[in-house]
Write a protein that binds this DNA or RNA. Structure first.
Lengths: 190, 190
DNA sequence: TAGCTTCCCTATCAAATGATAGGGAGCAAA
DNA sequence: TTTGCTCCCTATCATTTGATAGGGAAGCTA
């Protein structure tokens, strides 16, 4: 196999395993087995296990971080901006073969060696909380602790990730829209 | 310390670690350190690591399973029954020192040695999905795949668990009610 | 062909992990 | 005091884990 293909396959399989089992609990042997290579061959493509999770994380988070920041700064009702962001996030999620969703912290970010990634994620979280706060201040959203709101948004994203794993999805865009609608109904005052 | 106290403390600390790191990734040494005993002393109270997670799981799940089954069989609007169940679940969660929420499967249930627990959880899930289906059929809820609905309910519960860990909660009952309201708004047709 | 690089392999290591063996301090009953 | 039990300890073990060393086959360039 081409090196680039193997590398990609490692990212795909590792992201699935990290998602299911968590970073610490996923062994390099399990990743290798899923990729159909032997364990030491992993280290031809990545210097260590940490580098794998870091790359997955960047792939998942970088664009999301830009988008949520834009959503914070754009004009218009917060509810619409949050909805738009969620539609993008969920539909991307359902399409990408590599997706830890970044938001899905699992255990990975609690280990000190990944503190740098954790910091990146916190910035993302702050933007998301900011957007929720905007909606609360404008009276669009129910009065909820923004950090709880952020956690619920993230957890619903995770629910979609898990759903994608066990169900076959015909229309990712429709599912993404429905997921965003679901979240927004929860946030909006009735 | 009394044996019973130590045992209880092991369950409390282990449940917190399992929640944060996952079952596989949590080491017996970490549990012991949190309890302030040495690692081999754990095995005076529990035959092995699996026995710890099993007991936490039973404590978390047994009553919840009974309650959700009752909620399925009771008369009245599904939305009210789901709401009632969630208020109980969340307020229990915020009070219990030992709580993996059971729903929070993490990785634990994916390892074959815990297949029995996984089966128990599946029964619980079926009841929850059943209740959601009732709400959809009666026209109270939006038309959503019940298994996705179940995942979202579970994930919001997890969000509350995480929230409870980082924020100080003054009024667990109010928080539980607000959490249940949040979920129900998402499910109900507008 | 010869030489070099790429990509995977087998063999192996040091550290970490779940679990066991066996001892000792405290305490209650006799 | 003696006996026995409880609860924790230190020391240790076999296995698993992330990572390294070094070789071999395939393919490209000259």
């Amino acid at each position: 196999m081409e090196a680039a293909d193997t590398r990609q396959e490692i990212l795909i399989q590792a992201s699935r395993l990290f998602k299911r089992l968590g970073y610490r609990a996923t062994t390099t042997r399990e990743i290798a087995k899923a990729v159909n290579i032997k364990q030491p061959s992993l280290f031809h493509h990545f210097p260590n296990k940490k580098a794998i999770v870091e790359e997955i994380f960047s792939l998942s988070l970088n664009e999301a971080a830009v988008r949520i920041e834009n959503a914070c700064r754009t004009a218009g009702p917060a509810s619409e901006r949050l909805h738009q962001y969620l539609v993008w996030d969920l539909s991307t999620l359902h399409r990408m073969p590599i997706a830890m969703s970044a938001i899905y912290t699992g255990d990975a970010l609690k280990s000190p060696e990944l503190a740098e990634l954790a910091e990146k994620l916190k910035t993302f979280y702050r933007s998301l909380e900011d957007l929720i706060s905007q909606g609360i201040r404008s009276g669009e959203f129910v009065d909820i602790d923004p950090s709880l709101g952020r956690l619920m948004v993230a957890s619903i994203t995770i629910a979609h990730l898990e759903y994608a794993e066990e169900a076959t999805i015909e229309d990712p865009d429709r599912l993404a829209r429905e997921g965003a609608d679901f979240v927004l109904r929860a946030f909006r005052k009735t």
